[in-house]
Nucleic acid binder design. Structure first.
Length: 374
DNA sequence: AACTAGCTTTGTGGATGATTTCTAT
DNA sequence: TATAGAAATCATCCACAAAGCTAGT
């Protein structure tokens, strides 16, 4: 049986190209899409750009996933999650809510979205297309894209790094979080990797995207594992490991903002569009016009890198100036997130046609239903 | 188990005003 | 770059039939 037949049989064929396996679901379009078609469709205009997309449910293959079950390593829509976990035996599964994304995220952002870094080199196809880099290492042009220790700034909690939980929300009897607590890749990891890899090949400025990602919310300093963030073959040992940049504790008021939203739990997802705009607004500063009042800690490693670039020993990498995220900026990001969340709307779905017919024929006064005099 | 009665909850669309985003100057 | 005005977007309101739920037979 061919791959296509397999895909068709699995009911996962992309509604747009009818060729690739669908991995995402767009509620607004009620469509299952592969990554490539998703980008094509949703880059058409600003309206489409705002469609919210989610991974496709691993169980029913026809609904947007909203829950990631770490125990089963699967993503489920709310219905399937209920079906799968209603039994007491499976109700203890380690599950957490996942959300979708809007806009047209880059490959690196999609990598973050699915949180695939902990699979690293185990990914079967990553062994392909090796390219020598001259110094003995072997480098796949896109391999590192999929194998970095991704910063995964997909949640606000990633911005809220507090070693002592001074905010008062100290967890009790909660096991330490897995290395990649944002991983939300379901049963179709390999296909996701394959499609992202294909997209990466057609994304010529990938290195820029990647550093964008590092720059997102400005915060190598805020990321515990940031030292592991290694752009391509450049071997850096971030100063952050030994000398973390101090960061003000997250204000309790801001936490209260989150506490009223159980759905967010410990996984607060920042829509990529917002991350991107945030990055553009705050993080990326042109080389020669760096506002020194806003930049922080150009590490000696970066200096070293610059020399290496100048000497031509390594390929040029875009230079990113980081600056601290002050509390006002964080509050702003939070409020933007909350606002966007509050205004998020999905296309209307009529559940009861009879009620629709009834509503259409009702008498109204200024649009409101009017009482019928008997 | 199947049925009924009674109560509660849900969902439906157009007009409107508030808010946000876009555009022109 | 700042500002004003226009355009777009969205939440809210209303009544009531139908769906959903519970308790009793």
């Amino acid at each position: 049986m061919t791959d296509l037949e397999n895909t068709q049989k699995q009911g996962r064929l992309c509604d747009y190209c009818n060729q690739s396996k669908a991995l995402l679901y767009c509620r607004a379009d009620s469509a299952k899409l592969c990554f490539s078609c998703d980008r094509e469709v949703h880059s058409a205009n600003q309206l489409f750009n705002r469609h919210s997309r989610s991974q496709l449910c691993d169980a029913c293959d026809r609904s947007p996933a909203s829950i990631f079950c770490e125990t089963e390593q699967s993503v489920f829509c709310s219905n399937c999650d209920w079906e799968n976990h209603k039994l007491s035996l499976s109700s203890s599964h380690n599950r957490r809510p996942i959300e979708g994304f809007t806009g047209c995220p880059s490959v690196s952002e999609l990598v973050s979205f699915v949180g695939i870094e902990d699979l690293g080199n185990k990914v079967p196809f990553l062994g392909e297309e090796k390219v020598g880099c001259g110094d003995g290492c072997e480098e796949d042009g896109y391999l590192d894209l999929l194998s970095w220790e991704t910063p995964v700034i997909s949640g606000f909690d990633d911005l809220i790094v507090s070693s002592d939980f001074n905010h008062g929300f100290k967890p009790t009897d909660v096991p330490s979080l897995p290395k990649n607590r944002n991983a939300s890749c379901g049963q179709h990891k390999e296909e996701i990797f394959r499609q992202l890899r294909e997209m990466a090949k057609s994304e010529p400025n990938l290195s820029f995207e990647k550093t964008d990602l590092e720059a997102i919310v400005g915060f190598q300093s805020l990321i515990p594992d940031a030292g592991n963030l290694q752009p391509g073959s450049v071997n850096t040992t971030s100063k952050n490991d030994a000398d973390p940049v101090p960061f003000p504790l997250y204000e309790s008021s801001a936490l209260e903002c989150f506490s009223d939203n159980a759905e967010m739990g410990n996984q607060v997802f920042v829509p990529f569009s917002q991350l991107r705009s945030y990055t553009e607004e705050n993080a990326v500063v042109p080389d020669k016009h760096i506002d020194t009042s806003k930049t922080i800690h150009v590490t000696s490693q970066e200096d070293q890198l610059e020399h290496q670039v100048a000497a031509g020993t390594i390929a040029a990498v875009p230079k990113i100036a980081f600056h601290e995220l002050n509390s006002q900026e964080r509050d702003s990001a939070i409020s933007r997130y909350k606002e966007k969340r509050k205004t998020r709307r999905f296309d209307k779905h009529i559940r009861y046609e009879s009620r629709k017919l009834r509503a259409e024929t009702r008498t109204r006064i200024k649009g409101r239903f009017a009482k019928v005099e008997h």
